[in-house]
Design a binder for these strands. Structure first.
Length: 472
RNA sequence: GUCCCCAUCGUCUAGUCGGCCUAGGACACCGCCCUUUCAAGGCGGCAACACGGGUUCGAAUCCCGUUGGGGACGCCA
């Protein structure tokens, strides 16, 4: 039997970290087993579903490269099918029309809460045969009254629910549209889903869904309820608790493989290994190894994982997102160093593409002024002689590659009889405006000869003016 | 409130059938080293089996309870 998993988000907001992880687990499991991964958009709530949200989900999944093998299916396009199944259940007496008003149900709920009972529909319309004038009925599923339902969950183990705890849930609203717990069952059945991998918050829905499967004469799929991701406050991660849209992570310069790596380690591990390529995740991941306890989202670790992936990344792999960062930060990369070379130099020193772009601005644009602290410390009269000699040596330099430039700096330092640091730091501040940059030879190479000389002149003039030294 | 789930360092986790656990790794934090800056890297430090009962020669590992945390209880998904 081929494994078929699915990711079934509802387009009512952005796609956040929690959703991404269940999508990842489903995708990984399908890939690991050579199965199929289905994408389904659960948009039966017409009030809250939007076209934009659908697009955001699709864009997010594409960016993450969690490609689906089938779909996206839209529930709104399957209305006829749901209606057909509802009619069938009604005809077979497995569902019935309920004429209770919202007011009545609210009162019932309130009363039950007051009596310290679990709020649930009491089945008062179960035996009703006559319509009630003026009330459009909803359709309720006739849940078994006795016995138990066993959920044999892959990550939770066996969980038993008492049917007496469950009530007759609404499967069709007064306007005839079907509701979640029902459409999920019809879809998972029609789409041949073998493994439902979803958030822990659905565990309580599962016995109801299993009962509907049985009423339809079908065997339910296997279930795997994965633990939730909690925010720093220990509460379920949601928009209010710092759950950012996936695309937000793209904007902040995270790599999709790093985000996925971080997420896969939340609730799953393979010995002491922290960094996984996508290939390794596919090979090693098994839904049965997911642990059952909830975990807390830790932005610091995500940053570290991203840094690790950035170090290993190939230019081709990140080029698109890197260009996106430059554009986003208003940096025109059309004139300046080769991006590939820049990336290779910078990738080991930054944690995100956003940082990488920000720290690379000086290779494309002139800086407005020297960083005050850096200038005060390094652009002093004592540095003048060294900078002048460097200016002269570099002006005559033909081979503008890092190794040769390194030689130039080293020999000037030797001539001067100073340690490299004494010369390199003033030079760094002179050409970048700050005390922080890649190694000085790589910095010069990336800057190019023209920019380097120009900035050296400017720095020399700056010191002369400041120290009131007569130019020579 | 009722039902369901969970419980190892601040956080993510290792912990195969109970003995190899004086509880390992990673992030963060703190030192030191390396060093042309910042990083990266190397070395070291801090830090946990929630509590109480059992079972057993032996329990972080099994059982029960307590406590704590989370989730669900919609004509939302």
């Amino acid at each position: 039997m081929t494994v078929r998993t699915r990711f079934a988000p509802s387009p009512t907001g952005h796609l956040h970290i929690g959703g991404v992880r269940t999508a990842l687990f489903s995708w990984l499991y399908a890939r690991h087993t050579g199965g199929r991964f289905v994408l389904r958009i659960e948009d039966t709530d017409r009030e809250r579903s939007t076209e934009e949200a659908v697009q955001v989900i699709l864009d997010g999944m594409r960016w993450l490269r969690l490609e689906h093998d089938e779909g996206p299916y839209f529930q709104t396009q399957r209305m006829d099918r749901y209606r057909e199944v509802i009619e069938r259940l009604l005809a077979e007496g497995k569902a019935y029309r309920c004429y209770c008003t919202k007011e009545e149900l609210d009162a019932l709920r309130e009363e039950q809460m007051r009596r310290r009972e679990k709020p649930r529909y009491d089945g008062r319309c179960r035996a009703r045969t006559e319509p009630r004038p003026g009330v459009e009925p909803v359709v309720r599923f006739r849940n078994p009254e006795h016995g138990t339902v066993l959920v044999d969950d892959i990550v939770r183990g066996k969980v038993v629910f008492d049917n007496a705890e469950l009530d007759d849930l609404i499967i069709a609203r007064a306007d005839g549209t079907p509701t979640y717990n029902f459409t999920v069952v019809v879809d998972d059945l029609d789409m041949g889903i073998t493994h439902v991998i979803r958030g822990d918050d659905h565990l309580n829905n599962t016995p109801r869904q299993i009962n509907i499967f049985r009423a339809l004469g079908a065997e339910p799929p296997r279930y795997a309820h994965v633990p939730m991701i909690l925010g720093a406050d220990g509460k379920k991660l949601s928009k209010r608790h710092g759950a950012l849209s996936v695309l937000q992570y793209r904007q902040e310069g995270y790599l999709p493989q790093a985000l996925l790596n971080y997420l896969v380690r939340l609730g799953w591990s393979h010995g002491d290994q922290e960094i996984f390529t996508i290939r390794e995740m596919i090979d090693l991941f098994d839904i049965a190894d997911v642990n059952p306890s909830a975990s807390t989202f830790n932005p610091d670790k995500l940053l570290w994982v991203n840094q690790q992936h950035l170090k290993m990344a190939e230019f081709e792999d990140v080029e698109e997102d890197l260009r996106f960062q430059f554009t986003r930060q208003g940096i025109d990369v059309s004139s300046g160093p080769d991006l590939r070379r820049l990336f290779d130099v910078q990738k080991a020193r930054t944690r995100t593409l956003a940082e990488l772009a920000a720290q690379s601005r000086i290779f494309f644009e002139d800086f407005a002024e020297f960083d005050a602290a850096a200038a005060k410390k390094h652009l002093r009269p004592a540095a003048l002689e060294g900078l002048r000699r460097l200016r002269a040596a570099l002006a005559g330099q033909e081979d503008w590659s890092a190794p040769s430039l390194h030689q130039v700096v080293v020999s000037v330092a030797e001539d001067l009889g100073v340690k490299l640091g004494k010369l390199a730091q003033p030079l760094r501040v002179a050409v970048t405006g700050t005390a922080v940059s890649p190694s000085i030879d790589a910095t010069l190479e990336l800057l190019g000869k023209a920019r380097t000389l120009e900035r050296l002149d400017r720095a020399i003039a700056f010191i002369e003016a400041r120290a009131d030294v007569t130019p020579r």
